[in-house]
Write a protein that binds this DNA or RNA. Structure first.
Length: 485
RNA sequence: GCCGGUAUCGUCUAGGGGUCAGGACACGUGGUUCUCAGCCACGGGACCGGGGUUCGAAUCCCCGUACCGGUACCA
């Protein structure tokens, strides 16, 4: 039975990179019929917070990455917060010391820092010099009697540590470059290496899928598995997501929190599709995949070895593609929160004006790439509270067009059916009668009614705006331009 | 510095001992339309460098270079 986990540290919101790692784990579990565990690595009490935990949970829920074991849902290996599993780590550290695989270290942080700086100033690297590993039993007893604070360090054996990475192939590290790392701090808090290995063993993880930045941590952890007499899981280190400058994606690059993308009007299914294709490929030319297709095609072998640059334009395109495929009813539901935020929503849109609202969605949907754009694009049809674009007015509402425009308003007021085809016929015959190019009258009418130089097809727009609004706006525009000109 | 990883159009990638090196985003040109978006057509654009191995290398091997990551009593 396949078991994988996503183990974020709640020191920040769920960011793009973390979301992609979570997604790969989730896709793998779902494809393999395995179990997906969410474990919160909050051993760093200083930097962890409940707010961040809920931020991560919200992000995963938004993306639809449900976990089989973890916070809220529980599970057989509960608890799933490392801060509640401290005793396990302390016992494991004690076991290591008892077995001679680790030793107490009484070195102070200050002395370690000085040695490291001294070594580095000569241009060399520094690994722990094993001062405390060389302590005699009496020396240790003396320090214990004095109640000296001590950390627990893992005794790295000689040799070479290797592991077969499912993405990169075999990777080997000479143990000489791995220092005797701390597994339990002097305040009895475990370090990452200890807690992650103890938990992955305890929770029976079969695969560890995580970021490339963990490759150099892996030999330390493999050594720990061996010391515990446990077979390491299979590792798959996935490439990192970079910003346009090829540096790791960070705040500097703009939005990095997954939830920020929700606010920006992206669809979770688009985000999932886009993220999945960042560093992974199903192998063919297909770019747009549903959640089920992603699951059925996902394989660790398809993960590429190199880091990937986050390309916002491509995300926009993917989002647009998903948006266009949404039925009007669904699009309406997605857009509602954005209209509410703009104060443009009325409950009538889901009752008496439902049909009108769906027609509005159908009219504007093809022209937007993100949900938040709808409110802005459709604003003139949702409220009278909008501004006329100065440049558009100057360009299209020239004095000579005002009289025809006024006449058109009169015809529109009287036309028997306020439907697009009828409106178009009306406008075109007036244009012909006046020897005007229809386009001129169309543009003038568009600016008068919407205040803008661009909109969906004018006649469909007018039909939805409604006779009263159209006629009064046309007259108001004529009046405004006449008096100002 | 040391250790590890990676290298195909600007970006995401397919492919992989013999291909016209394919697709997508972006970009350019043209078409459609009342504008914008869209859509359609067309176009420019890549195998990091050097050595091997081989009849043949972008593909396999080595070296170099570049980039990324790690080098903590952070995770």
């Amino acid at each position: 039975m396949i078991r994988v986990r996503f183990a974020p540290s709640p020191t920040g919101y769920l960011h793009i990179g973390g979301a992609r790692t979570a997604l790969f784990n989730w896709l793998f579990a779902r494809r393999q019929g395995g179990t997906f565990v969410l474990r919160i690595e909050d051993t760093d009490a200083e930097r962890s917070s409940w707010e961040m935990v809920s931020g991560i949970v919200d992000g995963m829920r938004w993306l639809g990455l449900d976990w089989d074991e973890g916070p809220d849902v529980g599970g057989p290996h509960s608890p799933y917060f490392q801060s509640e599993r401290l005793e396990k780590y302390r016992a494991a550290a004690a076991q290591l010391v008892a077995g001679g695989r680790a030793y107490y270290c009484y070195c102070t942080g200050e002395s370690l820092r000085q040695k490291r700086e001294a070594a580095e100033s000569t241009g060399a690297g520094w690994t722990y010099d094993r001062t405390c590993c060389a302590l005699s039993a009496e020396e240790v007893a003396k320090r214990e009697a004095a109640g000296a604070p001590r950390a627990v360090r893992f005794r790295v054996p000689e040799g070479t540590t290797t592991f077969a990475d499912l993405v990169h192939g075999p990777i080997a590290f000479p143990n000489a470059v791995i220092e005797d790392f701390v597994v339990l701090r002097s305040d009895a808090q475990p370090t990452y290496h200890l807690s992650v290995v103890v938990d992955d063993i305890d929770m029976r993880m079969t695969h560890v899928i995580r970021g490339d930045d963990h490759i150099s941590n892996t030999p330390k952890q493999v050594l720990l598995y061996q010391a515990f007499g446990s077979t390491p899981p299979a590792f798959a280190h996935v490439p990192l997501i970079l910003g346009p400058d090829k540096k790791r994606l960070s705040k500097r690059h703009g939005a990095t929190s997954v939830m920020e993308y929700q606010r920006l009007g992206y669809l979770p299914e688009a985000m999932v599709n886009f993220l999945a294709l960042l560093g992974w490929s199903p192998g063919g030319d297909q770019e747009l995949l549903t959640r089920d297709e992603l699951i059925s095609k996902f394989a660790l072998e398809g993960i590429s070895g190199g880091n990937a640059v986050f390309n916002p334009e491509k995300l926009d395109w993917v989002n647009q593609q998903f948006l266009q495929r949404l039925p009007a009813e669904e699009a309406a539901a997605r857009v509602e929160p954005f209209l509410r935020a703009e104060g443009l929503w009325t409950d009538a849109f889901s009752s008496t004006r439902r049909a009108w609202f769906l027609a509005l969605i159908a009219l504007f949907k093809p022209r937007i790439r993100k949900l938040d754009q709808f409110a802005n694009e459709a604003r003139p049809l949702l409220t009278d509270d909008f501004v006329h674009d100065r440049a558009a007015v100057d360009k299209h509402l020239q004095p000579e067009i005002l009289e025809p425009l006024e006449e058109l308003a009169r015809l529109f007021e009287q036309v028997d059916s306020f439907a697009a085809p009828r409106l178009e016929a009306t406008l075109r015959s007036l244009a012909e009668a006046r020897g005007l190019k229809p386009a001129r009258l169309i543009h003038a009418t568009r600016v008068a009614v919407t205040g803008r130089a661009t909109s969906p097809g004018l006649f469909e727009t007018l039909e939805l705006a409604g006779r009263e609004r159209v006629v009064s706006r046309m007259r108001a525009a004529v009046a405004a331009v006449s008096s100002s000109g």
